[in-house]
Amino acid sequence: MKPPSMKFPALRIYAIIYLLFLFAPIILLPIFAFNEGKIIAFPLTGFSTRWFETLWERPSLHSAVQSSLIIAVLTSIFATIFGIFAARGGAMANFPFKGGIIGFIMLPLVLPEIILAVALLVLVTKVLGLAPNLYTIVLAHTLMCTPYATSVLNGAFANLDASLEEAAMDLGESRWGAFRLVTLPLVMPGIISAMLISFIISLDEFIVAFFLSGNVTTLPVYIYGLRRQSDQLPIIMALGTILVALSIILLVAAEILRRRGLRRAGLEDAGGFL
């Protein structure tokens, strides 16, 4: 047999161009972030870290980061807890309407974000009579991240032999004890992975956060606020570089954990998230 690349090189070339298209923004980001010039364009004018340094001198940015971190941490905890419930239930026995219930839990994945934002804004302001605040964003982000956490955890739970928990109960543990001593350690990599994914999504989410932010500014809302000032663009690049680096580090960690979890359960890799 011929090596695959010989069979159809056009496809491989296309794949590489496509990857370039996908990664173009990420590759350019640090280039401009470390560029001396104020104008974001080629040719580059020289290496500088001054844009990163200015980041330190902005208290409004710091409070935005703080809000975003609080939101992202809370969201990742809640979404992962819901994800554990959903994935565990999904892996257990069937009953009527189970598919519908799971479908409803996964629905936020395809709901246009603006609709979600509108609906939640109306709920918070009209029905509950509250001003939108940090915690309304957490509510919304938890809803949006739960499907992602669920699909990450689905792999972990679906691969779990149901008789393991029964065996633990047979050996004297209560239902909760069996879950804690057997199931939890086995799905732990999935749990951490789900938390990281939810964290990243929440940290980056803009559309809903903007609707529900009220007087809180999250990091994306802050960045959005800079959109009209072209002299702020290099600062956005610097900020973006940090964010992207953080995302990639977390993502790689999540992926490594997910794979380790699979290996620990002695299973084949069935593909990535989603």
């Binding site: 419930f85 257990m92 026995a93 069937n94 009953f95 409803f104 839990i105 029905v127 919304a140």
Partner: peptide
């Protein structure tokens, strides 16, 4: 099945509260 339902209930109820009710509103 009942145990599975019980496990699915919290995220489901949450989704109902944050999607169905707001959409109805």
């Amino acid at each position: 099945g009942r145990r599975a339902l019980r496990s699915l209930l919290p995220p489901f109820v949450y989704a109902v509260f944050l999607m169905a009710i707001p959409l109805a509103t």
